[in-house]
Design a protein around this nucleic acid. Structure first.
Lengths: 195, 195, 195, 195
DNA sequence: GAATAAGCGAGACGGTACGTCAAGTCTTCTA
DNA sequence: TAGAAGACTTGACGTACCGTCTCGCTTATTC
């Protein structure tokens, strides 16, 4: 089977202590100096790790940050069945907007989306992990609605996702205002119909 | 008397030749080496200008690029009265999507939006120029629809703008696929109603 | 004679006001920021002159400083006949050492001697003006002593000058200590004999 | 325990290869382009070293040159006992003058003395290393003469040093002529008496 | 009195080098 | 073999001045 216990290799094992120190240092530093001011060198110094140790495990500072975010913040979006498409959608939006209330998380997300534009390799990783996971979560809701026959013919599911994530990211990227409940209501009304 | 023809200042005049050379070099280089590989130093070398000349007139490489974009590409969105809200909206979307078909323009827009996240000062300038101008163009259409009594109560105009620009930017930033006419139709149907 | 009144040329005359302002600014600035920190740009700004005006009349900042020194400080060394070689020599040394008591003058002289090493063209000008004039003054004393039959056969006059100016410059360039009367006495005793 | 073999520090060791390349490049370049045309940037390029490597180990280009001089040229002045003060002095002068016959060494010494005037920090280092070492060498001779009772009461030892180094430096700094044996004889006669 | 000819302050220009920062790699010692 | 330390080459940063080149304006001489 593919999942052999990976034949324990010789040599010292990866230090979990270092890993945590590096992720913590990255998370702290990005708050203190901003993403532009963040550097591998700075993370190494702050965490007490050697630069090589960081380069061994993460390709860029954005990957460190993405790892720190996944480790620290709870990015999991639960999609319990709320009984109707509209209710499911509202629950999803409210849960998503909650993340937007933590300014540190927002700052990191903006930086990661920015890096994804500038560095194509990181962009692939970011899309494959963060972006795709979010779309998958929403897809569960849309599939459920479809099975229920609850889904309007227009817009198509893919476009619904584009609209929802589009609005969230657009506000994240262009305004300092937090997204609010009223916006959630408008989106539900627009997408799930006035029922 | 107010508005005198700005009392000619002493000193040598700004060189339009240099300005053009710098903008052209920036536009060329970003295609060749990408935004991450773009540098003030490179622009200076390629354009034959001194670095100081660039720093004198633009604060960052992103500002040079924004200027180059505004000078070269036609970013103006016309908003002629097409007779109805739905028709106006469709025209606006089609015109906007057209920009998305030029890969060079798309690449620059992604880079500028990225820079806007990383550099707060440039973010302010980018929002105040590019982002705001686009919203203003759309506002004309929304005002016209409102005057006509053509505007649905939900979503509010601000949210309509968030949805439209949200979808455009989200697709720009997360997929290599060009936006297409079908997406425009779906958005019109969703926002202007199936009337 | 060669010195025709140079057929008055047309055009505006050199501004004596500017000249004075430039020399004064240079003299002030070298005290404030030191020779290394002195710049043509700085002199222009401080004096209210244009850079071109400075470049029109002086080739380097050292030349400005040399001019300022000649204009401001009294660099003339009187060589009155004191009756004997020893007395003449002592008078010359005392007068020379007096200059060394003004720290501003000392600082400028050190800078000019330094520049003369680094910039060969200025070196020629410095030697032809300052250095040579000082040697000429001393030569008057040595000629007088020679005519009197007062001059020891060793060292030769040229070497006497080398010793005297050598000691003065060496102390100027390598120690912060001011030269003093005792040194003058020792030199006179050594060079004019114990008579 | 004092003087342990300096407990081997972690980290990569200083590259002797780089050091040599930098000193050689500096020595070569100063000949080719002169001290004014010498730059850290140029030394880095020529030597194949990074600028940072130079800045890590030397504060200024003058320090690089001083190091190159000490490494390359034999600046050591031997002071063997020649039997008498006059003989010792003559030997010292002849050995010193020999250095003055190498135009490259002369050019560097002039530049270093110049830099010492312009940059106070380097001045301290230059005096503490080069200047002081030379005076110490001469002091050995003067002490020996004093012990022998061979030393005239005037001039004092300090003044003898001022005269000797004064003449050497003055000629170095103000004339292109090499110092010669005849000058040595005159100085010996003047300072050690005609005995 | 017009034309011509400097000189002037201002300031933009193409350059060169500065000294710094960080990148990513390499080497050494220790766990 | 991993990790901390730290030196290495590389490349760009943003700044300071260099010396030159327009500008518009002022002051002089010449026709």
């Amino acid at each position: 089977m593919a999942d052999q216990p990976t034949r324990a290799r010789p040599g010292r094992k990866r230090s979990e202590e270092s890993r945590q120190a590096i992720l913590a240092a990255a998370a702290d530093l990005v708050v203190e100096v901003g993403y532009a001011g963040l550097s591998i060198e700075g993370i190494a110094t702050r965490s007490g790790a050697g630069k090589q140790t960081i380069y061994r495990w993460w390709p860029t500072k954005a990957d460190v940050l993405l790892d720190a975010l996944a480790t620290k913040a709870d990015l999991h979006i639960p999609v319990p069945d709320e009984g109707s498409y509209a209710a499911d959608l509202r629950a999803f939006l409210v849960a998503s907007f909650a993340l937007g209330r933590n300014p540190h998380v927002v700052a990191v997300l903006r930086a990661l989306m920015a890096e994804a534009q500038i560095n194509a390799d990181f962009g692939d990783r970011f899309r494959a992990s963060f972006i795709r996971r979010r779309r998958d979560a929403l897809a569960v809701i849309l599939d459920r609605a479809s099975a229920r026959g609850d889904l309007p013919p227009t817009p198509r599911p893919g476009t619904v996702a584009d609209i929802i994530f589009g609005v969230i990211w657009y506000r994240l990227l262009t305004t300092p205002d937090p997204v609010d409940r009223r916006l959630a209501d408008e989106l539900v009304a627009t997408l799930a119909g006035a029922r």
